[in-house]
Simulated assay, not measured.
Amino acid sequence: MTLRIYFSAPAADWPEYGPHLTSAFAEAGIAAELSPELGDPAKVDYIVYAPNPDLTDFTPFTRCKAVLSLWAGVERIVTDPTLTQPLCRMVDPGMTESMVEYVTGHVLRHHLGMDTHILGKDGVWRHDSKPPLARERPVAMLGLGQLGQACAASLRALRFPVLGWSRTAKDIAGVECHAGESGLRAVLSRAQIAVLLMPLTEGTRDLMNADRLALMPKGAVIVNPGRGPLIDDAALLAALDSGQIGHATLDVFRTEPLPPDHRFWSHPRVTVTPHIAADTKAVTATRVIAENIRRAEAAEPLLHLVDRQRGY
């Protein structure tokens, strides 16, 4: 049987994803008619999805067996009341590798104080700016999903003590795991660097507010490649102005692209990167999509199925 698969994503994505999906389906033995053109929604078996204005009502897709997201975050779709089909988020091995590289690179940058020497080309011999050993620098990993665990493992391999926090309790080898509000406060009070990799839900929005930023050791560093609204922008700017937070490296923002007049651009203690930490990689993500379709057709459990109550 030939499956009808609708590619519902921004038009600019089709030239890259179309060939990789076709190849991935062939490798998985899936006979598929793949198209970015909708046709009759009642005949669609699966939707490969990224947020776009062409699809906001899933009601007509009466035969659709699953919506397979190309994005790790599903906050733009998970609350859609018309979405009754199973929803799977993207956990892409290529994206995980990219995130590990970004997080490890920026943690090392701040740990080693590299900016002091890269930017301080003024003839001053700053011999007193030597860093401690990694094992003396606790790093908080806020969010212990696939990305958080992979980044924690990389940092642990460099001997950083990793203090992990998640909304529900976890047990991860080599990571000191905490959960709940008391656990968050305990982690932040010790973390000299905090990495934010939680999903965006109503429970994590503005997680890093003035109260929680004040818990961190003075001069601590924030690295946020997760979601922009995890941080209260005004509270972060105030903490940076006072020196409570020594630096913030931010890859994600409430409004993207970040408006040119936003204070983050000009603040001397902020590094802005333009949402480049970890894009979905078509060559690896399409294999995840193909595997989930194979599983659905074989009546096997879907990978990365979203829990609608938790929002991820």
Rank of each mutant, 00 (worst) to 15 (best):
R4P: 11
F7I: 00
S8F: 01
A12V: 15
W14A: 02
G18F: 01
P19T: 06
P19I: 08
H20E: 15
A24W: 05
A26N: 04
G29F: 07
A31D: 12
A32T: 06
L38E: 15
G39W: 04
D40H: 11
D40G: 01
Y46R: 07
Y46V: 11
I47W: 07
P53R: 06
T56H: 03
F58I: 05
T62P: 12
K65W: 06
A66E: 13
V67D: 07
L70I: 09
R76S: 15
V78A: 13
T79D: 15
T84S: 10
T84D: 12
L108I: 09
R109P: 08
L112W: 04
D122T: 14
D128T: 11
S129P: 13
P131K: 05
P132V: 10
L133V: 01
L142R: 08
Q146G: 10
L147C: 05
Q149L: 00
Q149Y: 03
L155H: 03
R159T: 08
R159E: 10
F160N: 07
L163V: 05
W165S: 14
S166N: 11
T168Y: 10
I172N: 08
V175T: 03
C177F: 03
C177R: 11
H178A: 09
A179T: 14
G180W: 06
E181W: 08
G183I: 06
G183K: 10
V187N: 08
L200Q: 09
L200V: 08
L200A: 05
T201S: 13
L207H: 04
M208P: 00
M208Y: 05
N209E: 00
D211N: 07
M216Y: 00
P217S: 01
K218V: 13
K218W: 07
V223I: 14
N224L: 00
R227V: 04
R227I: 01
L230S: 05
I231A: 00
I231M: 03
L237D: 04
D241A: 04
G243W: 05
Q244A: 09
A248E: 01
T249E: 02
F253N: 03
R254E: 08
T255I: 04
E256M: 00
P257R: 01
P259T: 09
D261N: 10
T271F: 00
V272P: 01
P274V: 01
K281Y: 09
R287A: 06
V288S: 12
E291Q: 07
E291F: 02
I293C: 14
R295S: 04
A298P: 03
A299I: 10
L303D: 09
H304L: 12
V306M: 14
R310L: 15
Y312D: 14
Y312N: 14
